[in-house]
């Protein structure tokens, strides 16, 4: 690994992976406890529509994609907030529609072709320095907002009704959370790809949740665990010449199932273990 770091692209890949781990650790924690994993998947896929739109109209990539994703996310959030029992269906429709629009617009764009594979799996080994700066800035804004609204976020995601009664601006906060999620997802997709974003959003927070005693611990733990997965995955990919994004997910997936197996053993372990009634 150390020898790998002599390469510039490897250092950038490592930094990008670590930044993505932190962003996904914080957002993923909120996504998992608020049970909006499916909504995040919808945002991530619908974002492809934004990519198609930007390339068709020749807009700069980031503003176009972020604009489109935030719009799609708002629609999904508004509908799922009002019609909770139909949320999954609506999200599924927009998920599919966003991707289809993206692919057709890319088809219609003359002489230009976005590689779908690089959108799905990213190109972590080809991250330019400028993307790293953008990620640092967005990461810092996210940490700031999460710190400021921390108690409100805890109250809202734990017990929305109680939060509302206590005067927490639940609606504004919920939509704010979704906007932040859409921005984070688009940025991180550009760097590490759609599949890795979803893996990093869900797997580390889920594993850490059982051991954390607060949302803050869960965020820190998920970020660290994501970083471990990224480093281990990148090492594997360098050592055995494998696709980097897939290697990271493989590591995360193996640890995920290991943690499930450990839980099973602990519950079967009898006295001395805490069981949930």
């Amino acid at each position: 690994m150390i020898e790998a770091l002599q390469f510039d692209f490897m250092r950038n890949a490592l930094l990008a992976g670590l930044l993505a781990s932190v962003i996904c650790g914080i957002m993923g924690t909120l996504v998992v406890v608020s049970r909006i994993v499916f909504l995040s998947g919808g945002i991530a896929h619908a974002a492809y529509g934004g990519i198609g739109l930007s390339s068709f109209f020749g807009w700069p990539y980031l503003p176009g994609t972020i604009g489109f994703s935030v719009g799609a996310a708002m629609i999904m959030a508004a509908v799922s907030h009002r019609l909770k029992h139909r949320a999954d269906t609506i999200i599924g429709v927009i998920w599919a529609l966003g991707m289809a629009i993206g692919i057709i617009l890319v088809d219609l764009t003359p002489g230009y072709n976005v590689d779908l594979m690089s959108y799905l799996f990213g190109s972590i080994l080809a991250v330019p320095r400028s993307d790293l700066y953008v990620m640092v800035i967005v990461g810092a804004i996210m940490v700031g907002l999460t710190t400021y609204y921390y108690q409100d976020l805890v109250a809202m995601s734990y017990d929305e009704e109680f939060a509302q009664i206590r005067g927490v601006p639940v609606r504004r906060l919920y939509f704010g959370l979704i906007v932040m999620l859409a921005v984070a997802v688009v940025l991180v997709i550009q760097v590490v790809g759609l599949i890795l974003v979803i893996a990093l959003l869900t797997i580390p927070p889920f594993i850490v949740e059982k051991y954390a005693k607060s949302l803050f611990q869960m965020m820190v733990g998920a970020s660290l665990l994501g970083a471990v997965f990224t480093v281990a995955g990148l090492w594997l990919s360098y050592r055995y010449n494998l696709t980097s994004g897939a290697s990271i997910i493989l590591v995360a997936g193996v640890v995920f199932f290991l943690s499930l197996a450990i839980d099973k053993l602990r519950i079967a372990g009898g006295p001395g273990t805490q069981t949930v009634s």
Partner: peptide, 12 residues
């Protein structure tokens, strides 16, 4: 509600 939520009784 939210049984797996990481929160202690005191924090609630």
């Amino acid at each position: 509600i939210n049984r797996s939520f990481p929160i202690t009784a005191l924090d609630v």
